[in-house]
Design a binder for these strands. Structure first.
Lengths: 132, 132
DNA sequence: AAATTTAACTTTCAAAATGCAAGTTAAATT
DNA sequence: AATTTAACTTGCATTTTGAAAGTTAAATTT
């Protein structure tokens, strides 16, 4: 996606404003997924060619890293960069929005509660775990 | 967009996970835009047929309202519903992300500063102004 | 009151993105 | 040596997007 404007919101959308990128980041962030096949088996079942192109773009955009697993060279280990980890507050606000406006979904209650009463602690914990 | 999963993040993307919807909400939220032609003249210049289809979807999804301007019946006045206003925290986090990771953009410094040191006051102010 | 302009779209069609299924390659396992 | 696994890529049909021109009703101008 080319740069559309100088707007900071538009800029975020230039990186993750498609239907899949934020779900990849979600899986890396909350579900401990690390490999291509992990990501392919998410609940939403994204097509393999789309997954491939999104991983490539996210890596080019500096939101994720890709490394070869030294114990099994077939496997590539995907992880979030610091910039990728910093997407977390956006995802938290999305979870809060759905907990309020679409309460009939699978909302992680614990997470929502902590997002409300210990937001910065939650962000700190997840961040340090992901950057460890 | 059909419902893809029970995930709260995926759910938000089902409503606004395209390249344009959040920019429409941004324009209604921060720039006081209210009419079709206002929205069409945003910096990113979205195609008129796409604008039309997004407004229809956002209205169906309960994020915006559409009313006829009583003083000029050609004009339709678009505004955010409470659910639409609640997108604000997501946009704020996007602005913060860009201020950190793409600082060479047009970032509203004032807004970023307040987002950091008076987040809930900022949200409260904008919310009450929009719902007035 | 007729002609023009404005606002909000709709339509058409080409181009790009998405999605499904099958195929490829290299490394690991049997 | 043969099979399986992981990570893709390729080919092609379908869907979405985008640019441009066209339509309609209400307001304004002449």
């Amino acid at each position: 996606m080319p740069t559309r404007s100088q707007c900071p919101i538009s800029n975020v959308l230039d990186h993750v404003g498609d239907k899949w990128s934020l779900l990849i980041i979600r899986d890396l962030m909350f579900f401990g997924k690390h490999t291509y096949s992990d990501l392919q088996n998410s609940e939403e079942k994204m097509a393999t060619n789309i997954l491939s192109s999104r991983l490539e773009k996210l890596e080019n955009d500096g939101l994720i890293n890709k490394q070869i697993d030294p114990t099994d060279k077939r496997k590539k280990v995907y992880s979030l960069t610091p910039a990728g980890v910093d997407i977390l507050p956006i995802l938290i606000e999305m979870i809060i929005w759905s907990s309020k406006h679409a309460p009939d979904l699978n909302i992680p209650t614990e997470l929502v509660a902590r997002a409300h009463n210990d937001r910065s602690g939650l962000i700190q914990d997840l961040t340090s775990r992901l950057l460890a």
